[in-house]
């Protein structure tokens, strides 16, 4: 068996997390869960401080005099007014700003992606692959027509075909992802058997 504390801790937490799936909800899992949440939350705070707060305040504002950066900081601080009931409404200003910026970003950035997907579908119908691709694209788009009644035979046919294309692609994606998950499981088993217990050779 391995003698390092790090390996023992890794093995303990690996097994502790697996106990939920392999056994049932239990105190060992709860302990591992709590430790994990605590560590990741603390890690997030430290990273935020080192990657954002310190460079912006100490370097950009204090050293380089970029005082405009105080504006987003002030807007961000308004978020904390939600803890004071009488002025909690003020926190909606940064929230509204945030959602608005997000929506505007989506509106301006997404059409470009669609356009490149449309032009990528311009394939000559001289190969079976291309024919399958084009029929797949069109039938799947038709499947996502929400306000067109699916009563006529062509519409029924196209939506059924679209659904079939979707299911085939889901099957392929599912299978390839399951393969990658199994390789993750093997990685953990390899760690437990080789690095921790040292009962399996490399």
């Amino acid at each position: 068996m391995s003698a390092t504390l790090q390996t023992w801790l890794s093995a303990f937490f690996t097994i502790a997390i697996y106990t939920l799936v392999l056994y049932k909800d239990n105190k060992v899992f709860r302990f591992a869960e709590t430790v994990m949440i605590g560590i990741t939350a603390a890690n997030g705070i430290v990273l935020t401080y080192h990657n954002y707060i310190r460079p912006v305040v100490a370097v950009d504002i204090i050293q380089q005099g970029k005082y405009l950066q105080l504006i987003p900081i002030l807007i961000g601080l308004l978020m904390y007014t939600r803890f004071v009931r009488s002025i909690a409404w003020v926190s909606r200003i940064p929230m509204g700003f945030w959602v608005g910026v997000g929506a505007a970003y989506i509106l301006t950035r997404n059409p470009g992606v669609f356009i490149s997907q449309i032009t990528a579908s311009f394939l000559a119908l001289n190969k079976l692959n291309n024919v399958v691709f084009v029929v797949g694209v069109i039938s799947v788009v038709v499947y996502f027509y929400f306000t067109v009644p699916i009563r006529s035979a062509p519409m029924k046919g196209m939506t059924t075909l679209g659904k079939a294309f979707l299911l085939v692609s889901f099957g392929a994606t599912f299978a390839s992802t399951v393969m990658s998950r199994i390789s993750l499981l093997l990685g953990r088993l390899q760690f437990l058997l080789q690095d921790w217990l040292r009962i399996a050779g490399v």
């Binding site: 997390i17 591992a32 869960e33 994990m36 949440i37 560590i39 990741t40 939350a41 890690n43 997030g44």
Partner: peptide, 9 residues
Amino acid sequence: SDHYFGYAI
């Protein structure tokens, strides 16, 4: 937690 694994678990 903002960390994916912390959140997931």
